[in-house]
C-alpha cells in the first residue's frame, strides 16, 4: 500500500514553476530513486514533504493523513524524516549528542536516549567517534552522521537528499551497504541521488523529474533506456 503520495503537487516561486503537477507514490518497504538533472525540483519536493515548504497546489499524504503545510516537527513525529543535501550537524555538540537529539523523540530520559543513540552509532560504525565534536568529522563522516541522526528517530520513511555526493567510491560503497541494511530492516526509502550507479543499485523503482515535471516512473532498467530520460540527461536539440 502507498505510504507517501504526492497528488498533483505544484510549487510556484514567483514566476517560476519549480514543480508542476507532480504525482507519484512510495509504497511501504519500497526504495524509490528520485532523479533528474540539476534544478529539476527534487529538493523542492523533499522540502514540501518534510514541512519546510508548502505546495502552491496539490496534496501530500503520508500514512493516511494529509501532511502538506504541516510543521516539520509534526511530520517527523509521524515517521517521515529527511536529511539535508548540505549536511547540517549540530557543530558544537558531540557526535553522540547529535544522534541523541534524534533518539530523544522516543525517550524523555537522558540515559535511555544515550543508550539508543550509542546503538545507532555502533551500527553506523561511528561508536569510536561518539565523543568527538561533530564539526571535526570528515565530509563522509558528516554525511553518515546526517543519516544516523534521522535513523535515531525510528522513521517509517526516510528521505535521503544526496547523501553520496562528494564521497569517494569506497565511501560510497559503504553507505550503499548501510542503506541496504536499513531497507532490509523495513524502512521505506525515497532517495535523491545524482550518482546513477548508486540509484540503479538501490532502487526498486525510479521517478524522473525534469523541469519540474515527472517524465518517467518505472523500474531502473526501463527508466535508463527511456528516450525522454536519455534526452533530459544528454540534452535535446533545443538545449
Amino acid at each position: 500500500m502507498s505510504l507517501l503520495e504526492f497528488r498533483d503537487v505544484t510549487r510556484q516561486f514567483g514566476g517560476l514553476r519549480a514543480i508542476d503537477q507532480v504525482s507519484f507514490e512510495v509504497r511501504e518497504n519500497e526504495t524509490v530513486g528520485l532523479i533528474g538533472p540539476n534544478g529539476a525540483g527534487k529538493t523542492t519536493l523533499f522540502s514540501m514533504a518534510s514541512g519546510f515548504l508548502a505546495p502552491s497546489a496539490g496534496e501530500i499524504w503520508f500514512s493516511g493523513a494529509r501532511i502538506d503545510g504541516r510543521p516539520a516537527p509534526e511530520i517527523c513525529r509521524r515517521g517521515l524524516v529527511r536529511t539535508f543535501q548540505i549536511v547540517r550537524p549540530f557543530g558544537e555538540m558531540s557526535v553522540l549528542d547529535n544522534v541523541m537529539i534524534g533518539s530523544f523523540l522516543h525517550h524523555r530520559d537522558r540515559a535511555e536516549a544515550r543508550a539508543d543513540a550509542l546503538a545507532v552509532l555502533r551500527r553506523f560504525g561511528m561508536a569510536e567517534r561518539a565523543g568527538q565534536p561533530a564539526r571535526t568529522l570528515t565530509l563522509a563522516g558528516r554525511k553518515r552522521l546526517e543519516v544516523a541522526k534521522v535513523i535515531a528517530t525510528r522513521p517509517r520513511l526516510l528521505m535521503l537528499d544526496e547523501v553520496m555526493a562528494g564521497l569517494t567510491r569506497v565511501e560510497m560503497d559503504e553507505i550503499i551497504a548501510l542503506i541496504r541494511s536499513l531497507r532490509d530492516d523495513g524502512v521505506t526509502i525515497l532517495l535523491v541521488e545524482h550518482n546513477m550507479h548508486a540509484v540503479m543499485a538501490l532502487s526498486d523503482r525510479v521517478v524522473v523529474i525534469h523541469h519540474g515535471r515527472k517524465i518517467c516512473d518505472a523500474e531502473p532498467e526501463v527508466a535508463a533506456n527511456d528516450p525522454a530520460v536519455v534526452e533530459a540527461y544528454l540534452g535535446g536539440d533545443e538545449e
Partner: peptide
C-alpha cells in the same frame, strides 16, 4: 542546544 546550533536541522528531528 540543538536549536542554538541549527534550528531547521532540529525541526527536522522533531
Amino acid at each position: 542546544t540543538a536549536i542554538r546550533n541549527d534550528q531547521e536541522a532540529a525541526a527536522a528531528l522533531g
